[in-house]
Amino acid sequence: MTQDTKLKVLVVVPAFNEAANLPYVVAAVRQHAPEWDIAVVDDGSTDGTAEVARSLAVILLRLPVNLGIGGAVQTGLIYGHRNGYDICLQVDGDGQHDPAESVRLVDKLLESGADAVVGSRFLTETGYQSTFARRLGIRILRSVLGWLTGEPITDPTSGQRALGRRAIALLAGDYPQEYPEPEVIYVLRKHGLRLIETPVKMKARRGGQSSIRVLHSVLYMIKVLLAIFIHATRSPVKGGSV
């Protein structure tokens, strides 16, 4: 549990048509960390996600149109930044992230003094390990990010993250949009922020896998690598390393 009671923690829950999962996610967060604020970012849902969020008495950030995961998470960070939160946590609305693990992320952030902590599925081989194609892609991303930033990363696509003030300020202003997870790692390290990993367990999302997914994974890889290389050619944003 977090030691400092004055610490302001905001749980950002990006939710696109997650009306069914949302009550479970919010209840789980409250069970493990009742003092944290929860901001549900309704990313243009059409299934009544906003109404469910209202009934749960959380902070509702309702996007009028669907922006995608990057735009949704950034909305939560903008809110967190403007309202003086010390830590922002990303807990996905689909229930893949266990809020009990999020508590450990925050503890890790506080004790290490790092700017960001990423929950990694691969530091210890426990829980859901993803499909073969994805694991292969993750291996390539690991190598590229490790090579570009000069520091190792084991789980570059993990969305389970805790961000400190410096990281919140940076990412509220400039958040990668289309393929955010690996890019965020690159952006944070490029601006001189310290990012570390801690092992977490993750659950599999319900639903089947089709062979088309493999093609999607390949396309995803090409695009995300392109996005990272483009970032590598850019100069850091002004006031980025605050």
Partner: peptide, 13 residues
């Protein structure tokens, strides 16, 4: 447009 949508969401909250 993205910035506009985000500002709208935050302002509404």
């Amino acid at each position: 447009l993205k910035t506009l949508c985000q500002e709208l969401a935050v302002l509404h909250a």
